[in-house]
């Protein structure tokens, strides 16, 4: 292991500022290599299928009802970027929720906000994705709209208010839809997909840490991990990898988040551990806790080549029943201790 000390996340070359296809101008998530976006005939065919599926709510509901497996399969292949925003709204159900609550977003924004919450939000909107063209400019439109989403949510759900992991999520959604659409999608993310992750006390995330550890033991040899999962998995889970992976992969994970829920986060987390500590040689070099943490922070680039990470994740089978069993086992062991 080299003693190289560069902090990759904070390097930006302002003289040669390039913007990648996702709007990043620097930082660790800038895509330097060619990604796996499908172009050409296959890409166009996929796009047509998605356009037809998401054409209107009625046809979408038919798809979800009668051809749910097909929808999952198509999500696994990746949602074409042109329809991604709309597809996420349909998948999450935020499209319908928004229809039922017309005018609510503006109402929320006109209400009084807790001062300290507002101060925390304002401190963070420039720090969500400081190297993304939409959010890098202080006081720019991206930051302003992100502020509106977070402000409205803190009024919509005051028991949760604002938590720092929320800003990257709000920003991620804003990259794909209008502010009001993004707000309602954000509501579903906070309340359905990453449910409880942001609540004061963070019990949910600590519980997921235990579940993750149990699942890891089933799916990868447990001796590979010599540290407490909460030492590294908090950011992975709370942002659903939005701050961790190359951006093209973040989007693919989110395509699946809306259909597989937290299962996809567990799968990607397990696959990351498996691939990062795959061979004997790699395992030896990560014998100390410090080295393990270092490897998990600067994930080796080869795990992303040819979509290896996502393929590995999709090969892992975790069902709702599996999760339930783990939750119950943890609950039981806690009651025994108590």
């Amino acid at each position: 292991m080299s003693d190289d000390d560069s902090d990759r996340d904070d390097s930006i070359d302002s003289e040669q500022m390039k913007t990648d296809r996702y709007g990043f101008q620097g930082g660790s998530q800038l895509e330097n290599c060619s990604d796996d976006t499908v172009v050409g005939r296959v890409g166009m065919r996929r796009e047509r299928k998605w356009v037809s599926m998401t054409n209107d709510l009625k046809s979408w509901k038919r798809w979800m009802r009668w051809r749910h497996k097909k929808v999952i399969e198509r999500c696994r292949k990746g949602i074409p970027s042109s329809v991604r925003g709309k597809a996420w709204q349909f998948l999450s159900g935020s499209y319908e929720i928004q229809k039922k609550h017309e005018g609510e977003f503006d109402k929320l924004l006109s209400q009084k906000v807790d001062e300290s919450v507002m101060r925390d939000i304002k401190k963070d909107i420039g720090r969500a994705f400081p190297y993304h063209e939409m959010f890098s400019k202080n006081g720019g439109p991206g930051q302003r709209e992100l502020l509106r989403i977070l402000q409205a949510y803190s009024v919509h759900n005051p028991s949760i208010g604002y938590c720092q992991a929320m800003a990257p999520i709000g920003a991620l959604l804003l990259m794909h839809m209008t502010t009001e659409d993004a707000f309602w999608c954000f509501v579903t993310v906070c309340e359905k997909y990453l449910s409880g992750f942001f609540s004061p006390g963070l019990e949910a995330i600590q519980l997921e840490g235990q579940v993750f550890y149990a699942l890891l033991q089933r799916h990868a040899p447990a001796d590979k991990l010599n540290i407490e999962p909460l030492m590294f998995m908090t950011e992975w889970y709370m942002c659903a990898f939005a701050r961790t992976l190359p951006w093209s992969l973040v989007l693919r994970v989110w395509d699946l988040l809306f259909i597989e829920n937290v299962k996809i986060i567990h799968k990607v987390a397990i696959a990351t551990i498996k691939l990062t500590f795959d061979s004997k040689e790699k395992l030896d070099s990560s014998s100390s806790m410090h080295d393990t943490l270092r490897r998990l922070k600067n994930l080796p680039a080869e795990i992303f080549v040819n979509n290896a990470l996502l393929r590995e994740a999709n090969d892992i089978s975790i069902t709702d029943k599996d999760l339930e069993r783990e939750y119950k086992a943890i609950q039981n062991s806690e009651t025994t201790i108590n």
């Binding site: 996340d9 904070d10 963070d124 420039g126 720090r127 969500a128 400081p130 890098s136 720092q164 992991a165 800003a167 990257p168 909460l230 030492m231 590294f232 998995m233 908090t234 950011e235 709370m238 942002c239 701050r243 410090h290 943490l293 270092r294 922070k297």
Partner: peptide
């Protein structure tokens, strides 16, 4: 100027 807020912890 704009360091991302730490989520969880970092080593």
């Amino acid at each position: 100027e704009n360091v991302k807020p730490t989520i969880g912890a970092a080593f």
